[in-house]
Simulated assay, not measured.
Amino acid sequence: MAKIAFLLADGFEDSEMVSPYDAMKEAGHESIIIGLEKGLECKGKKETASYTTELAAKDAFASDFDAIIIPGGGAPEELRVNDDIIRFVKEVNDQNKLIAGICHGPQIMISADILKGKAVTCYIGIRDDVKLAGADYQDEEVIVSENLVTSRTPKDEPAFIREILAKL
């Protein structure tokens, strides 16, 4: 059983949180929702899902987790400017643990400066940002590159989840 950190803030893409979160729980993995503060209610941009953060980013450490999953939508934009989120993602990457991001999720990977030399996919709107961060952008439903798993949009969720579970 793996311990997985879900990075979340308001405005996440509903299904990109719900589907992987439910799949990880169903597979028996422990899933912890990490946000800017503990106890924050985070609502999906479509308002079909809502979660409460269980841990503040400042209290998250790579040694306590096996993987990070970053849902897309507007949440990564808010999270990527937080020093504790970036420190945590860098620590997890330094330990070569799984980091998975879908849609806008790779924005946090860009800010953590962990994309150089990696093959990555993402929402087309941040394609140029990913390239400028040194990644080899590929327009595929899912890309696995070393410890990273990335996908583009909600329609790619089955492949995204499949590859995360395979890496765990």
Rank of each mutant, 00 (worst) to 15 (best):
I126F: 01
A27E: 11
K25W: 10
Q107W: 03
F61A: 09
F65Y: 13
E47S: 11
L36D: 14
A57M: 10
G117I: 04
D83H: 13
G74Q: 13
Q95S: 11
D128R: 13
A112M: 08
S63N: 09
V92W: 01
K97E: 12
G117T: 05
P106R: 13
G73C: 07
D84V: 11
P106V: 12
K131A: 10
K46V: 01
I124M: 13
A119L: 00
S15G: 03
L40V: 05
A67M: 06
E26D: 12
V120P: 00
A57T: 10
A23W: 03
G117V: 02
G74H: 01
M109Q: 09
N93T: 06
G72L: 02
Q95N: 06
D22E: 14
L40K: 15
A112E: 03
A56S: 13
I34K: 08
D64N: 15
G28W: 08
I102P: 00
Q95A: 08
D128Q: 14
R127F: 03
G39P: 05
K116Y: 06
Y21G: 02
A75S: 15
I99D: 05
V89Q: 03
D84P: 02
D84M: 06
Q107A: 09
L55A: 04
C42G: 09
I108R: 01
A67F: 04
G35D: 11
S31C: 15
K43H: 14
L40P: 01
V130F: 00
C103K: 02
D129I: 01
Y123C: 10
I114W: 01
D84A: 11
I114P: 00
K97T: 08
D59L: 05
S19K: 10
T52D: 10
G28D: 11
F88Y: 05
A56L: 09
E78R: 15
L40T: 14
T48N: 07
I85C: 03
E41W: 05
K97H: 06
A49K: 12
N82S: 08
M24G: 04
I124H: 13
A56I: 12
M109F: 12
N82G: 03
E47Q: 05
G28A: 13
E54S: 11
I68R: 01
G44A: 04
A49Q: 10
D66Q: 11
F61Y: 14
I86G: 00
I108V: 15
T53C: 02
I68L: 05
L40Q: 15
T53H: 07
L55G: 02
G117E: 03
P106I: 08
I33C: 08
V92P: 00
G101S: 02
V18S: 06
N96W: 00
V89T: 14
E78T: 12
K43Q: 09
G39A: 11
Y21R: 12
V130N: 01
G74S: 12
Q95I: 05
T48M: 13
G73W: 02
C42Y: 10
F61I: 07
V18I: 10
S50R: 11
L40W: 08
E78K: 15
K38G: 04
Y51K: 09
I33N: 02
G125L: 11
S63C: 08
L98N: 05
M24F: 06
S63M: 09
S19Q: 14
A60R: 02
I69W: 00
K38H: 07
